[in-house]
């Protein structure tokens, strides 16, 4: 039986790793839930942002928080441009999968052309820093990531619930034609939301640059688990996405600590199936 320290440490690192799942799931969940667009290029955009953070940090010595000020708005603009294509070709849910997959591949190739397929690592002195609470170690960067993800998820949740735009978006997601007949300009809102989703990818990318070593094919690393997170957290629900991310991260980590680490990938999808079948009210 593993010790309490081991279990606690596994839980901490799992929840914090889940923060990344949640952060990546956020933008995906919004566009899937509220625009009915399944945006596979979300991951590629996050990696583009990560590479840009790396580039600015390594070659121009721009600190990641400053480069984020540049990259996140740029990603917002990319989201708008991407939505222009969705809008122009009247892309539906199924076609969006195909088209955004192609976007992702193109971005992957472009990244590889510029940065090569070789590994890129943005070394910072704080990337592996951690502090001690009792017997447990808490990595600083992951903690900040979780706080940022928490603020974003909470803010987005409030925005969707409390503001006119947020409520109109939810109404339009349920029935776009009826919402339009009540004066909701769904098109304009959809652009806004697509931009936001891409901006969230940009924020996730900043953290990816600091936490991970980059290679173009890594774009697909998080695909499966983040999809599970989006579905468990319910489409279009930002807080759900974050909690589901942490739930999966924690379950994977506990499985790795108690059972064999090889069980970890099974956990997220087993959890997904259980929750789909059980469909609890509170989730």
């Amino acid at each position: 039986m593993p010790s309490a320290t081991l279990l606690g440490q596994a839980l901490i690192s799992g929840v914090l790793a889940g923060g990344m799942y949640g952060l990546l799931a956020l933008g995906l969940s919004l566009s899937w839930g509220l625009l009915r667009l399944v945006n596979l290029s979300h991951f590629a955009l996050a990696f583009l942002a990560a590479y840009l953070t790396y580039e600015l940090g390594t070659n121009y010595h721009v600190a990641p928080w400053w480069s984020a000020m540049l990259i996140v708005p740029a990603m917002f603009a990319m989201g708008l441009a991407q939505h222009w294509i969705f809008d122009k070709f009247k892309v539906n849910e199924l076609a969006s999968l195909l088209i955004t997959f192609s976007f992702a591949i193109i971005l992957e190739v472009a990244i590889q052309l510029y940065w090569t397929a070789d590994y890129r690592r943005y070394e910072t002195h704080y990337s592996t820093m951690s502090f001690k609470v009792g017997p447990f170690y808490i990595p600083v960067l992951e903690l900040i990531l979780c706080l940022v993800a928490g603020v974003l998820a909470w803010g987005t949740w409030l925005w969707l619930r409390k503001t006119y735009v947020g409520k109109a978006l939810r109404a339009a997601a349920e029935d776009a034609d009826i919402a339009a007949a009540y004066g909701v300009d769904h098109k304009k809102l959809a652009y806004l939301l697509s931009g936001m989703g891409a901006a969230y990818a940009g924020i996730a990318g900043t953290f990816i640059a600091l936490i991970a070593t980059l290679a173009p094919a890594q774009i697909w690393t998080w695909l499966g688990v983040v999809f599970a997170v989006v579905i468990i957290g319910r489409l279009g629900n930002p807080l759900g996405a974050l909690f589901a991310g942490m739930l999966i991260g924690a379950s994977e980590s506990i499985a790795m600590a108690v059972l064999s680490p090889a069980w970890a990938p099974v956990v997220s999808f087993s959890l997904l199936i259980v929750i789909l079948l059980w469909d609890p009210e509170w989730l």
Partner: peptide, 14 residues
């Protein structure tokens, strides 16, 4: 561990 394992936190703790 499975190839493509994303988080090594729990393994490191072990």
């Amino acid at each position: 561990y499975e190839s493509g394992n994303r988080d090594f936190g729990a393994i490191a703790a072990r």
